[in-house]
Design a binder for these strands. Structure first.
Lengths: 234, 234
DNA sequence: TGGGGTTTGACTGTCGACACTGTGAGCGTT
DNA sequence: AACGCTCACAGTGTCGACAGTCAAACCCCA
């Protein structure tokens, strides 16, 4: 008898290894707050909840630990990370470095057609949001740029690791910092720079854009904002 | 009876979990070429070789896979990565992004004493190499800079992941590309920029330094150099 | 002798059980 | 009452075994 039938994983899942399914489930649980930030993660409990053995759960937890969504405290207790100003600063610093480089590479590698398509989607997404019908597609400008950079290592580091943490920060701070209207203009400028094949400008714009996003986040999250003057120099 | 007594892991190891020990062992095996690049990795065989069960080996292999030293081919075969020009380009692009940012941050955060210490160690390492006594300390300028940047996430990405791959590239290309004599001057300039608190210059110098190292690598590794004009724009 | 189906082998995914370690509560001593 | 010690509990580390799957070799038949 699975204790939580709505959570149990059915065997005939065609989603490949159980560890991957458990990984996604735990990730969702963190996103949705079912696994509270800072709470301890119990392998055996999760295994029973999902109706699987501890092996896949263990592997999933280690992978979460690998991308630093779960920390390993002394004495072998696994905990979900806690949001902190320091961690957020580090996240945005790394985004500035990697997304800046990705943007620079995208400016060198994207075809004109790809740039035009992206520009059209950007405008389309804006109109959709103005109409209020912001349903399905969830256009993500940054992810699109990153995936266009052609560097699999950077793509993986950002989309596979950092963006998970970023989504957690976004979810746990309300939609206040969506800032999509402000961001549209900056996104448009970035694509213009890419279109003009000005790689240096594109990188610089992307960095400034992310830095503004970081400052916006800290402005609207006072509980996360023990920022000193030195740290402000992201 | 352990088939390879000199490789078996003794139980009373004080190095913590077996998975960590196996991880280091496999890493060394890749470094030293005992595990050839491109060869398939067999969990059971490694387990028998180390005298442990498949569990820790499995975990170690997955961690190697996480830092992209082992690739997962279709049909679940795990292989050690193969060196390629594309992979090397991606590695150096990521280093330029991350080490550039790390250098910038180090310029903002290091104390004068720390900078002076680093400068002294740099000079000391040079003299030691001139004397030919390049034995113990293995002074690593880049790692020192990175660890001084204060961003744990960047430190982990570089020292925990990327540098493993970089060492493999270095080892599998002879000492030709050591380039330490050429590098000394550039390292010195970078520290000077940090000392002057010119963060932008320090980042720019570090990027240029890494790009030169990349070009040096491709110059001396013709078998890895199907570089097109476009790709040269790292 | 060549093509197609079948068998065999190897390997990974998964599981349940045991062992070891740190923690906290409870008890006795001072 | 405070401190130190002991013991049960909780949780992870590790192990051996079973099951499913893909690949390659093998055999049969035309």
């Amino acid at each position: 008898m699975p204790p939580s039938p709505h959570l149990a994983i059915v065997k005939d899942d065609t989603s490949g290894p159980l560890a991957d399914v458990v990984f996604d489930r735990v990730l969702d649980a963190i996103y949705q707050g079912r696994l509270a930030l800072g709470s301890v993660v119990n392998e055996a409990a999760l295994a029973q909840e999902f109706g699987v053995s501890r092996g896949p759960v263990r592997e999933a937890v280690r992978r979460l630990q690998g991308i630093q969504l779960i920390t390993r405290e002394p004495y072998m207790k696994a905990r979900v990370i806690t949001l902190s100003a320091e961690s957020a600063i580090e996240l945005f610093q790394m985004r500035m470095a990697l997304e800046g480089m990705a943007c620079k590479l995208a400016a060198l590698r994207m075809t004109n057609d790809e740039v035009d398509t992206l520009l059209a989607e950007l405008a389309q997404d804006r109109e959709r949001r103005i109409d209020g019908a912001q349903d399905r597609p969830a256009f993500d400008f940054h992810e699109r740029i990153v995936r266009a950079c052609g560097n699999a290592r950077i793509i993986n580091a950002l989309c596979g690791d950092l963006y998970h943490l970023l989504r957690i920060y976004r979810r746990h701070s309300g939609s206040v910092l969506e800032r999509k209207d402000d961001a549209y203009g900056e996104h448009w400028q970035i694509i213009r720079a890419i279109r003009a094949r000005d790689a240096e400008l594109a990188e610089s714009l992307m960095r400034s854009h992310i830095e503004r996003a970081a400052q916006h986040l800290f402005t609207h999250l006072p509980q996360l904002a023990p920022l000193t003057a030195g740290d402000r120099a992201i």
